[in-house]
Design a protein around this nucleic acid. Structure first.
Length: 734
DNA sequence: TCAATTTGAATCGCAGTAGG
DNA sequence: CCTACTGCGATTCAAATTGA
């Protein structure tokens, strides 16, 4: 059976049966279990979120027009699209994702999707999808040079599978996929399954693990959100409660804070006899039955690792994402805890793993090169992972979970092996520098964001917290004051340079993950909201914005949550913009108005300069060759009203003196008011920071409390065990 | 720069399922 | 029957994008 024939059969099936039938959504994502069982995948839950991410990535890689949106919106827009493009059809894969493509594209997409699903070996196959795979089996098998996928049933070899209803279970006989010698199973080590959010295992062991991986993946508690932290606390309490009953607890994390960075992968926490520890990504989650001693040793290992001296970041070149970030909390190479930062890439990123060669009791856990999981993919679809085959490395080695092979075996991109040198090597420093350069480049300009096609997939940044907003306003205010204070070169700077400084300001205050684009977007949103609020407040009869309730704000189309502190802070320079004109501007304004009135110009003399009143040459009063233009250029800014002197004569001189005096008085009062507002805003900012710290301490305190409860529970279990032992002895004696 | 639109992400309620 | 957990749809918010 050729691949073409199989595709024809598949297309026929797709057209006639698969998409036309009313299949429960879950059936689409319950699939592949039999196939995965051949891969010794015990259980893999593919949550809708992970599925969406996967499908989106597939669609993007397939260059198929895709539309991903919430289902509620998609229902309406589907109607519009269908009217606009009758040939467009929707594929609903559940989870609120739809893919819009032509019929031909759709079939190709389905074919490629199925290949990828098998290649990723990380989702379960329902009978229908498995049935879809049958006609593809031989072509796939030929392509990847593994055992064929064929049904147990008596179907003729190579016969395309047409629209056979799934009600006939016999027609859905399990496929035969034999796997080459599997990697040694980690029999006695606690394992975790992160199948798109599924977590299994003893949470007492997972606690450090989760903290570790969250840190590794750059997801601190602040990234998970309070609700998620609450969920996790609840889960932990539940786990402890069940642990007291002596039962192992299977826990599934409902929320997607795990699935966001790991989908379809199993992660294992492996302690080594040598005292090292590694997190190893494998394709298969095997839930070992850890002994208590081992559990304790792993916990001890974690406690050793919990206080790293450094947090080095190693940049790993990648052909797809432009660089994955490997973060290690290890204080030394012998204490390596490593993971893959999920960055911009999708679930494919987490397919390489790091382990320390030589010390792991399990040895390198890479899959054999001809493993079925190394399924070749279509040439026009980039493979999930471009990592090279495992090679002997110096200290650390990246283990590819899915290797890259072309569908036809001809395209083999050369990717240099990923080597993780020792933490102090020059190569590491070089990578760190390059990484920082990349980060710098990414954050330094937001024009990049609008330039390339890759920029269209900018990841949504986390929500702005109140204190971050205040900080941004502070940064903008500083930029504003700097701008008006230096009318020369700085005024010629473009917007990107300004926002570069704002980003620097944010980073100085420990806001590291806001780039120029994010700052610009947020500032534009803030300024728009501020303007709306000010317009509302200006209208006579309107109650003040701050006095409105949430509902009232919504009814009046006002921003619902614009902090008073932020408002006051913006008042300090935005609200008074029309009134608080900086000296240099007033200077030029007055000069312009007075010269327009036929009088001599007003010159602002800087503090260190010659304060002698000079005449403009145009006035013919002995100006010493200094022209008005020269003066304008020579006049640096001054914020000291007492240095302002007037060069004028006659009645106008007195008039100008009055104007300047009035301006001095006005500017002083404005500056005083502004200073008071700034002080208030600063206090508010400090309070927000304090609140943040307080929350963090509260969280830490709760964690300590739970740890203590855990210890007490263990002691209690120990006492119960002693009592039971005593009873047992008594029973024996009796 | 601003307004409008699109889209990602979080959250909640509901119904179904499994196990005690 | 109760509890815990799930997927799914609906809803909302806000970041990102687009176009003037």
């Amino acid at each position: 059976m050729t691949g073409h024939r199989s595709h024809v059969g598949l297309r026929a099936f797709v057209r006639e049966e698969f998409w036309s039938s009313e299949i429960p959504r879950v059936e689409l994502w319950r699939p592949f279990c039999d196939i995965l069982s051949r891969f010794q995948i015990r259980r893999m839950e593919w949550k809708a979120t992970a599925a969406e991410q996967f499908l989106v990535s597939v669609a993007e890689r397939s260059q198929i027009r895709s539309a991903s949106r919430a289902t509620t919106r998609s229902l309406g827009s589907r109607f519009i699209r269908e009217r606009a493009d009758p040939s467009a059809t929707d594929l609903d894969f559940g989870g609120g994702n739809e893919f819009v493509c032509s019929e031909l594209e759709r079939d190709d997409f389905v074919v490629e999707l199925l290949k990828l699903l098998v290649a990723s070996a990380c989702c379960r196959a329902p009978a229908r999808l498995q049935q879809l795979l049958l006609p593809m089996g031989e072509s796939l098998a030929d392509a990847r040079n593994v055992d064929s996928i064929r049904p147990h049933s008596s179907s003729p070899r190579g016969e395309p599978c047409h629209a056979t209803p799934s009600s006939n279970e016999e027609a859905l006989a399990p496929t035969q996929i034999s796997r080459p010698a599997p990697a040694p199973a980690p029999a006695k080590y606690d394992a975790l399954e992160y199948g798109g959010g599924a977590v299994a295992g003893d949470l007492r062991l997972m606690m450090p693990y989760l903290s570790c991986t969250s840190e590794l993946f750059g997801l601190g508690p602040e990234c998970r959100g309070e609700k998620k932290v609450q969920d996790f606390r609840h889960s932990l309490r539940e786990s402890n409660r069940h642990a007291l009953n002596g039962r192992r607890r299977m826990l599934y994390s409902r929320k997607a804070w795990i699935s966001g960075f790991v989908s379809g992968l199993a992660l294992e926490w492996v302690g080594t006899p040598a005292g090292g520890a590694s997190i190893i990504y494998t394709s298969i989650g095997t839930l070992g039955t850890e002994e208590k001693g081992e559990a304790q040793s792993i916990r001890n290992l974690w406690s050793d690792l919990a206080t790293p001296a450094e947090d080095p970041v190693v940049s790993v070149p990648s052909a797809h994402s432009g660089g994955s970030t490997i973060r290690s909390n290890a204080a030394s190479p012998t204490e390596c805890v490593a993971g893959v930062h999920h960055g911009a890439a999708t679930n494919s990123t987490a397919q390489s793993a790091i382990t320390r060669t030589g010390t792991s009791p399990l040895g390198p856990m890479h899959l054999p090169p001809n493993s079925p999981s190394l399924l070749p993919l279509s040439p026009h679809i980039p493979c999930l992972c471009m990592a090279p085959p495992v090679q002997a490395m110096t200290n650390y080695v990246a283990m590819p979970f899915h290797a890259s092979h072309s569908m036809h075996g001809t395209h083999q991109p050369h990717i240099p092996p990923v080597v993780f040198p020792s933490m102090t090597s020059p190569a590491l420093q070089q990578r760190q520098e390059s990484q920082s350069l990349v980060q710098e480049r990414d954050s330094s300009t937001f024009e990049n964001h609008h330039s390339g096609p890759a920029s269209r997939t900018r990841k949504r940044s986390r929500n702005w917290e109140a204190w971050e907003i205040l900080l941004l306003i502070q940064a903008k205010k500083a930029e504003f004051e700097r701008y008006w204070g230096h009318p020369g070169r700085e005024r010629l700077e473009n917007s990107a340079q300004k926002y570069k400084r704002i980003v620097d300001y944010m980073r100085q205050h420990r806001v590291m993950d806001r780039d120029a684009t994010a700052c610009k977007n947020k500032w534009e949103a803030l300024s728009g909201e501020y303007k709306v609020i000010k317009e509302w407040d200006r209208k006579p009869g309107n109650p003040t914005y701050s006095s409105l309730s949430f509902q009232e704000r919504k009814q009046n189309n006002l921003p619902t949550s614009f902090e008073t502190e932020a408002q006051e802070l913006m008042d300090s320079f935005q609200g008074s913009r029309q009134h608080m004109v900086p000296p240099s501007v007033v200077d030029s304004t007055i000069r312009h108005s007075m010269s327009a009135g036929g009088t001599r110009a007003i010159t602002v003399v800087p503090p260190g300069a010659d304060s002698t009143v000079r005449h403009s040459p145009s006035a013919g009063d002995g100006g010493e060759g200094s022209t008005a233009e020269d003066e304008r250029e020579q006049v640096p800014p001054t914020e000291e009203p007492e240095h302002i002197e007037i060069w004028a004569s006659g009645k106008r001189k007195k008039s100008c003196g009055n104007v300047v005096a009035a301006f001095q008085e006005l500017s002083q009062s404005i500056m005083r008011i502004e200073k008071e507002r700034a002080d208030r805003a600063r206090e508010a900012n400090e309070m927000a920071k304090d609140a943040h710290l307080l929350e963090m301490r509260k969280f830490e305190f709760l964690q300590m409390k739970m740890d203590r409860e855990d210890e007490r529970a263990e002691k209690f279990v120990g006492v119960l065990g002693s009592i039971a032992g005593a009873f047992h002895k008594m029973a024996e004696k009796m």
